[in-house]
Design a protein around this nucleic acid. Structure first.
Lengths: 229, 229
DNA sequence: TGCCGTGATCTGTGATCACACTTAGGCTCG
DNA sequence: CGAGCCTAAGTGTGATCACAGATCACGGCA
């Protein structure tokens, strides 16, 4: 059984799952504006499939509260009120702060290396003369989730993904509007404190640094005033 | 417009949503054993519909990780390993503990009344000569979620619901097996401490009481040894 | 007696059709 | 000229059909 054992699994990807991840990435990247309406048939046509996979994708996103169905049964990406945004921010600080604290306890050398790499990528992008905001946001996301994964609690990572799915649209939409505010926000400082706390095995330091990072970006979003009161 | 304003919303319940909640309640109540396989057509027949609503329900539950699809594409309720159970317990203590602490800050008189009622219902059921375990578990669940709702963070309640959905099968399945261990577990003591802390506006006391409650029930589940190593 | 092919049956997935409902636009009537 | 109806297109939901793959049992071969 020499070569027969070497064939890997066939990457079982159902069309519905592909549609889900496509829509998911669009939402998390803020490419779908809050309030924008979606049509199953249009979505299916864009995906090159029938409405069935699109239906499953939308259903799952609705279950995650990343999309919402109006009383008319129309589907749209939710418009967050200021109150809801603040609520999500508080929950994020609690949940992601806990994840950071646990990461400080459980982080290994490999995790730390990956985290430092994402941190460096973010900083170099932000400090560049012509920063690519999309690249910067991706590095920021990779950094955060590398930390959360280092906690060794996959269930927690899934929860955080759900939270990011809800704030993704407003977060990245506003980020796109203004350029260099990213550098002024002081995210790099929080990141540096976070990485240092992780390396030192300091849970409360990591939690505080991450809470400050989240609070800082939330403040920035609120000052843009795009949220409905 | 006298009577026209009094008709409540027509309870817009799509068949898929009904199927989802039915399955959801079955899982949370532990009526589906871990490892049990589900069939869309069988499920549809039991619901009296076609496979479509059953499909949506299963899809959403799979997204919540309350059900899982095997590589064979067969659907079953997941069997938790001991490691996964402990992971979920740690996450529960963090998340639900935070909810309890916030509830201690935000709880109002009406919330407290409802919480006390559920607490009394649970205690009276547990101390009864012939305790109805199903009633007791329902009262326990109502008590917990009344506390979480009192925190005023709906997003957090949704997260906790997802966690309970995953541990529901093993929790209630084991509870059903042994009778009076429920009373010995000391849940009532933890509940009493929790209610007292909420009434006193003591966040850390509420968090500690709830953490002890979760840890106590988790210990009990582990001693039954039904979890796969 | 043990084991491997082979058939029917059942699985989830996707496509297509049918239906109730909403919504937007054009047309008619005042 | 403007307002109201009213048709037609588009919406999500559900049912039904079609299909590839998996499972399991029975029967024949070694």
């Amino acid at each position: 059984m020499g070569s027969i054992a070497r064939i890997g699994r066939v990457a079982h990807a159902t069309l519905g799952a592909q549609a889900y991840e496509s829509l998911r990435d669009l939402l998390i990247a803020g490419e779908l504006a809050p309030g924008e309406r979606l049509s199953l048939r249009t979505l299916a046509e864009r995906l090159g499939t029938s409405v069935m996979p699109a239906r499953e994708a939308v259903s799952r996103l609705v279950a995650d509260e990343a999309l919402e169905v109006l009383p008319n049964r129309a589907v749209r990406v939710p418009v967050l009120t200021l109150g809801t945004f603040r609520e999500l921010t508080r929950v994020r600080i609690a949940v992601e702060g806990f994840a950071a604290a646990e990461a400080a306890r459980a982080v290994g050398p490999g995790d730390l290396g990956a985290i430092r790499a994402h941190d460096a990528a973010f900083r170099s992008e932000v400090l560049a003369p012509e920063p690519d905001l999309e690249q910067a946001m991706r590095a920021n996301r990779d950094l955060h989730f590398a930390v959360y994964r280092a906690a060794g609690l996959p269930a927690l990572v899934a929860i955080v993904e759900g939270l990011w799915l809800r704030i993704g649209p407003v977060l990245n939409l506003d980020l796109r509007s203004s350029r260099r505010r990213l550098a002024e926000g002081g995210a790099q400082v929080h990141h540096a404190r976070l990485v240092a706390a992780l390396a030192a095995g300091d849970p409360e330091g990591a939690r505080a640094a991450l809470a400050a990072d989240i609070a800082g970006s939330a403040d920035f979003i609120e000052t843009t005033g795009r949220l409905t009161p």
